[in-house]
Design a protein around this nucleic acid. Structure first.
Lengths: 348, 348
DNA sequence: CGGTGTGATGTTAGCGCAAACATATTGCTT
DNA sequence: AAGCAATATGTTTGCGCTAACATCACACCG
């Protein structure tokens, strides 16, 4: 056994178990056992091996390990976007839970495009992950087929309005829209405007809108004006759209925004213009992003339970991965978002 | 040859090349060739195979493929955080470039903790990626050793002030700090306060601060007050810290924030309090986040060239992956951030 | 009409590791 | 002192795929 403590010279050939095995004078199998804390190994060899591995700078090859053991401790997480504050928080929840397990999340981003989703999913599945967490219930036929055929736990998150493939964790956006509509009506507002993203791709925003208008309709109230945007700084868009809409319809007394960011833009605009919020004009957004805490006035919103969704989804995957065997399945967790009225949803 | 077009029944055993091979009546090798578009395959067999693969719902096993071909088309991207707007934009730049290559980014998040970084790096390297893009130049000795020993392209991004392992793409934060200091002095401000994150972990913020104070010192100006925060909503923290600092030192005439988010909080506070910005008090942040566009007044800032950094880093990896052989190496790209004076950095 | 290229396909071997089983080595019992 | 657990280590095999080479069928040449 020869172990030098010097930094390894530029390694032409990547290191393998065999190198560690030779350096420490035991078989590859024993090295493997030490490195995975598996089986009985005497303290002496254990240290010998660890020392050799460390001084060589050996990093195990998971590709080979995964192939041999038929176990890949990855969880595919497929989300539409990273840049809107909501998914990072979901990710945080997921990591929190997976950190306590051997599982590891791998993120794929679809940019709200179904064909992207299909491609990302295919790529991910080709690594044979232990589970999939995917945003939304709307997927292409091909994507659904892949998910079903994969034979691994699938958790669709964020949304519960629809047909799940396997498990679901989320909130009902339709219900959320309804809830907000009721609160707004109850506060006495009647001339309501809606501002949001262009929705063909954002199913959850669409469902909120549907639930929202449904309740209004029941009360004989109709949306007075609506406007949709795409791209750009959400804060700036919120400002612009609000200005435009209020100019068009000065008699508006409430604006419902499909997300907090544009809502915040609207709020800033109103405060600037000296509009009496919430007396003359009420405002509400959606998501409950932390950002709102710093605004001059707290925007009414609804918490989307993002990190809890992440945690619950990860727990499902982790549990099923442990209990091995495709036991269970079909879990359905619907969380209830609560309205946070803040300072912008109450008639004075 | 039998190919049924029905949806595959619940697959007990995951599909392999052999299944497709049997279903299409050709050898596994030919199937492999078809699926990878490699080598000569007649149009007839090609279609036969594609059809079989599709109707079975076969997804190739990259684990096995990677092991056999000794090629893993993954790029490890290691960043401190996803929740602060800066890294998502870097990611976008990276994806943009890698999308045109067979390479695929895989993200790891360190939460600014060196021991996390070490662990994440180890995990990533154990998948034998084709390259590493990692934020910052400061890493633990162990991390540096791993990166050197990995024998793959390593691009350290965001920062150029320091010793790189291999390639670097970024800006000089020290220089950025200096530049801002000069601009502030030139505009005639003298009573300057600094607000930022607790810095032991955020090296780039620290370097900006160092550059900043260095220039001030040369002009005989000393920071009048400074305050650091940790955690919480950055916007709210900016507001609070600004309030506290202005109360302590009413004679302050400029506040330099280590990021735009707390800067925005400060700006909102000042506007609310009717403070004359930038006449009585100037403000500046750092990053050039899109968010600022929606603020009532545009905060002075400095663009950190985030997406360009991502693109350049990805290009380096992609190029080296193509040209095979560890050709090249040691590329160093220093971008020059420009001051965007906005509305808050000019004495009237 | 045998030689010789050119596509199209098949065969063999092995990537690096871990599961399963086989074999030492030790201490302890009776 | 033989027998038998335990514990500690080694050997064999194969995961699913691809590189490299081997083979085959055919067309085209002089």
């Amino acid at each position: 056994m020869r172990v030098t403590d010097q930094a390894p010279s530029p390694p032409r050939r990547p290191l393998t178990l065999r190198d560690v095995s030779e350096a420490s004078g035991v078989s590859e199998m024993t090295v493997s056992r030490v490195l995975r804390n598996r089986g009985d190994v005497s303290e002496a060899t254990r240290e010998k091996v660890l020392h050799a591995a460390k001084s060589l700078g050996y990093v195990p090859n998971k590709i080979a390990g995964a192939l041999a053991s038929q176990r890949v401790n990855l969880v595919a997480v497929i989300i539409p976007s990273l840049s809107n504050m909501v998914f990072p928080e979901v990710m945080t929840g997921i990591s929190e839970v997976l950190d306590e397990t051997p599982l590891q999340p791998v993120v794929g981003v679809t940019n709200y495009r179904p064909e992207r989703e299909e491609k990302v999913l295919y790529e991910m599945l080709s690594w044979r992950p232990s589970g999939v967490i995917i945003a939304g219930l709307e997927h292409s036929e091909a994507s659904k087929a892949m998910l079903k055929a994969a034979g691994i736990p699938v958790v669709e998150i964020m949304d519960t309005d629809g047909q799940a493939i396997d498990a679901t964790v989320g909130i009902s956006h339709r219900r959320a829209g309804r809830k907000m509509a009721k609160a707004i009506l109850k506060a006495g507002y009647r001339n309501i405007g809606f501002l949001g993203t262009k929705m063909p791709l954002d199913h959850r925003a669409r469902k909120r809108f549907e639930g929202f208008t449904e309740v209004l309709a029941k009360e004989g109230v109709e949306i007075m004006d609506q406007e949709f945007y795409e791209g750009g700084s959400a804060l700036a868009k919120g400002r612009e759209m609000t200005a435009a809409m209020l100019t068009r319809n000065p008699e508006l007394d409430f604006l419902y925004y499909s997300n907090d960011m544009i809502g915040a833009g609207g709020l800033l605009y109103c405060l600037e213009k000296g509009i009496d919020v919430p007396g003359q004009l009420g405002l509400a957004g959606f998501n409950g992003v932390e950002l709102l805490d710093g605004l001059p006035r707290k925007l009414a919103t609804m918490d989307a339970c993002r990190s809890e969704i992440g945690r619950a989804a990860a727990r499902i995957i982790a549990t099923r991965a442990e209990t091995e065997e495709s036991s269970g399945g079909g879990e359905r967790i619907e969380l209830s978002p609560k309205i946070e009225p803040g300072d912008t949803l109450k008639r004075r």
